[in-house]
Design a protein around this nucleic acid. Structure first.
Lengths: 193, 193
DNA sequence: ATCTTGTTTGTGAGTATTAACTAACTATTT
DNA sequence: AAATAGTTAGTTAATACTCACAAACAAGAT
């Protein structure tokens, strides 16, 4: 799981290439050219193209785990936890916009059923975390209880997801962190009990 | 723009193949095999692979235009118009689940910049329609006015989009029309003034 | 009825290009 | 002398697409 500097450089460039258009743009040749060495050199650092994609998923998972840990350290509950989580996510995406473009679109990993599985697992983790926060918020009467739980979930996550998608399609022309904060504020107003 | 029966069959199969995994699964060979004729036979009906993808986008656009026309016939306003629009969309997706999977993911058309442009245009149209409905709803005081317009938009569309995405990922294991209706109901409750 | 002619829709055999990946070798550092 | 990280020159398979040809069918003229 420890990556060498060269490996980090490779997956960074790979993410760049995928973000530029799509996974169809990630070829060994393109990737090697982007880094500035020959195709076979790539195979000194990764077994296969699939392994590169798998590493991208694992790296992102690692980052998200880091965010989760930091969140747990802060002893927040319910809606404040969720708030902090999304704020940190937006900050990460702002610093790594290509990663946002690549990972918001699961189609990029449909090359292989194993990769698709990894992607679904990650999404499940994310979903469970958000749901637990929302459940906690409900339990603490931080949010209204006249709505189906699933609807609250889908509105919250759907709105925030779409914000990121728009930010990507509009070439990062607005401040995701600020807009995100503001959107979460609106969600809090709507959902408060 | 008029398609022959054979052409309709071809794009239907093409959509099936893309939905099955992704656009990477759409090759001339796969498509010809799925239909049951040889590769060159395809070129009797479409100039190129790109033309097949463009036809998919245009067909969907046509369907959506049909929905828009029918909506206009009903003389609905604001939130009722939006309601009817999404209900019809969900009905269409239920009857054509593969089309939902293919068209909810713009990455499937990043093969070519022209296709990407067509896709963005279609999304823009969609966005403008929804925004006009929401603006009308605001003007008629059907929805609360203490929230940023963009936030209302992103919550509404984001929630409904995510519902479709989940429905696709979960292999259509719930009734999209019913769940959609129920979600719209919740949105109306939240947003009413 | 049949011959001619043209159109439509298919075929088998091929093209050029590009994909992921490998083998054998070399320069550099440890 | 051994591991590391690169090279050139390949391989094999798949890609989108083309070409020359053929079967099927539908008029229209004889």
């Amino acid at each position: 799981m420890e990556l060498t500097e060269r490996q980090k450089e490779i997956i960074e460039k790979a993410v760049e290439l995928i973000a530029e258009s799509s996974v169809q743009n990630l070829t060994i040749k393109n990737l090697a050219n982007a880094i500035g060495f020959s195709e076979p050199a790539l195979y000194r650092h990764f077994e296969s193209k699939k392994e590169i994609l798998a590493t991208i998923i694992r790296s992102f998972e690692n980052t998200m785990n880091g965010i989760h840990e930091e969140i747990e350290h802060r002893n927040l509950t319910g809606i404040d936890k969720l708030d902090a989580f999304f704020a940190m996510r937006f900050r990460y995406f702002t610093e790594n916009p290509d990663w946002a473009a690549v990972l918001m679109c699961e189609a990029n990993f449909k090359l292989d059923s194993e990769l698709t599985g990894m992607m679904l697992d990650m999404m499940k983790h994310h979903r469970m975390f958000v749901r637990s926060c929302l459940q906690q918020a409900l339990d603490h009467h931080q949010i209204r209880n006249d709505l189906a739980f699933d609807h609250i979930f889908v509105m919250t996550v759907g709105a925030l997801r779409l914000l990121v998608t728009r930010w990507t399609l509009e070439n990062h022309q607005f401040d995701l962190v600020e807009e995100g904060k503001s959107l979460i504020q609106s969600l809090r107003i709507l959902l408060k009990s």
